[in-house]
Amino acid sequence: MNIIYKRSFISVYSSMMYRMNTTIIETHDLVLLVDPGYLPSEIQALRHHIDEIRDSRPLYLLFTHSDFDHIAGYGAFTDAITIAGQAFAEQTDQEQAIRDVQLYDDEAYLDRPYELLYPPVDYVIREEGQTLHIGNTQLTFYIAHGHNPDGILTVVEPLGLLIAGDYASDIEFPFVYYSFPEYRETLNTMQRLVAGGSVRVMIPGHGSVTEKQAEMERRVKASLAYLDLAEAEAVSGSRQPFERFVERQGYRYSLSLTRRHENNIKLLRE
């Protein structure tokens, strides 16, 4: 697991799998761990690091959504105070979510030194704009459905961090497992947050961290453009706009991305 972004208050680690990002935020008030990753060796390294830096501060664990690669590490952090959306806590099929982890573990012959558990949620995000204050640290949450049905965005103040979950990546277009209209709503929310000027760092679930507002805006616009072309292809059947889009964006993992695009088109047609 490589550190891809580091400031005095934040470290972002990138996994060897899916280039998935795990974030550790330190303030005087808390240590916040976001999406603890998937590979057992990487999770053990994170656990060791947090034990070294935590001191007497409370440990919070934020889940951006319930995809298998985001929840698999929970069993190593059962001492944390957990945060997630209402749908994550109350509507997601928890048994199926754990089966998804088990399936990937079995296919990759992975063994874990802790029990696989679906994360119970201590602090449930029920409303758009809901806030959580821990000392001088404020977390503000926004509903982020579309990629899947239970995601959230989080803004951390006074640091100006936008934790984006699986949105606005620079290495992948939208993977829409749940709803195109709700995905578009999430992107519109991100667009408003970025345009407001208080977001100084955007951390996607996969890919590169950015401090540049123009790059944040570009990623959101590119995602909206992808939704438009996918909806057009579902009607016309023409693949050429998608191929030009992938080439223009410079996406590297073309075989996997083509399969994801086909799944998106299938969802639209269904």
Rank of each mutant, 00 (worst) to 15 (best):
2 N>S: 14
5 Y>S: 04
5 Y>K: 04
6 K>I: 08
7 R>Q: 15
11 S>P: 06
13 Y>T: 14
17 M>G: 02
19 R>M: 12
20 M>R: 09
22 T>Y: 03
24 I>K: 09
29 D>L: 00
30 L>S: 05
34 V>W: 11
38 Y>S: 14
38 Y>V: 15
39 L>P: 07
39 L>R: 00
40 P>I: 01
40 P>T: 00
41 S>V: 09
44 Q>K: 14
44 Q>M: 15
45 A>D: 10
51 D>N: 11
51 D>P: 01
53 I>P: 08
54 R>P: 07
55 D>V: 13
56 S>N: 11
60 Y>A: 12
62 L>S: 01
67 D>E: 13
68 F>A: 15
69 D>V: 09
69 D>T: 14
69 D>E: 12
73 G>D: 11
75 G>S: 01
77 F>P: 01
77 F>H: 01
82 T>G: 08
82 T>K: 06
84 A>R: 04
88 F>Q: 15
92 T>A: 11
92 T>K: 03
96 Q>W: 00
97 A>D: 02
99 R>L: 14
105 D>E: 13
108 A>E: 15
110 L>C: 09
112 R>H: 12
113 P>T: 13
115 E>T: 12
121 V>Q: 06
122 D>M: 01
122 D>N: 12
124 V>P: 01
127 E>M: 09
129 G>E: 05
129 G>W: 02
131 T>S: 15
132 L>M: 13
133 H>A: 12
135 G>T: 13
135 G>M: 10
135 G>F: 07
136 N>K: 15
137 T>I: 01
138 Q>R: 15
140 T>H: 07
143 I>H: 03
146 G>N: 07
155 V>G: 10
155 V>I: 15
157 E>W: 13
158 P>C: 01
162 L>N: 07
163 I>C: 11
164 A>W: 10
164 A>D: 12
165 G>V: 09
167 Y>K: 11
168 A>P: 08
170 D>K: 00
171 I>W: 00
172 E>Y: 08
174 P>T: 06
175 F>R: 07
180 F>L: 05
180 F>Y: 13
183 Y>C: 10
186 T>M: 08
186 T>K: 08
187 L>C: 03
191 Q>R: 14
192 R>H: 01
194 V>F: 02
195 A>I: 04
195 A>F: 02
197 G>Q: 02
199 V>G: 05
200 R>K: 09
200 R>M: 06
204 P>F: 08
209 V>M: 08
212 K>G: 05
214 A>V: 15
215 E>C: 06
217 E>G: 02
217 E>C: 03
217 E>R: 02
218 R>W: 03
218 R>M: 06
220 V>Q: 03
222 A>I: 11
224 L>V: 04
227 L>K: 09
232 A>Q: 13
232 A>T: 10
233 E>V: 08
235 V>T: 12
236 S>N: 05
236 S>K: 02
237 G>V: 01
239 R>L: 02
245 F>T: 02
247 E>D: 11
248 R>W: 06
248 R>D: 10
249 Q>H: 05
249 Q>F: 03
249 Q>V: 00
249 Q>I: 00
249 Q>M: 10
251 Y>R: 04
253 Y>R: 13
257 L>V: 08
258 T>M: 07
258 T>G: 05
263 N>E: 15
264 N>P: 08
265 I>L: 15
269 R>T: 09
269 R>F: 00
270 E>Q: 09
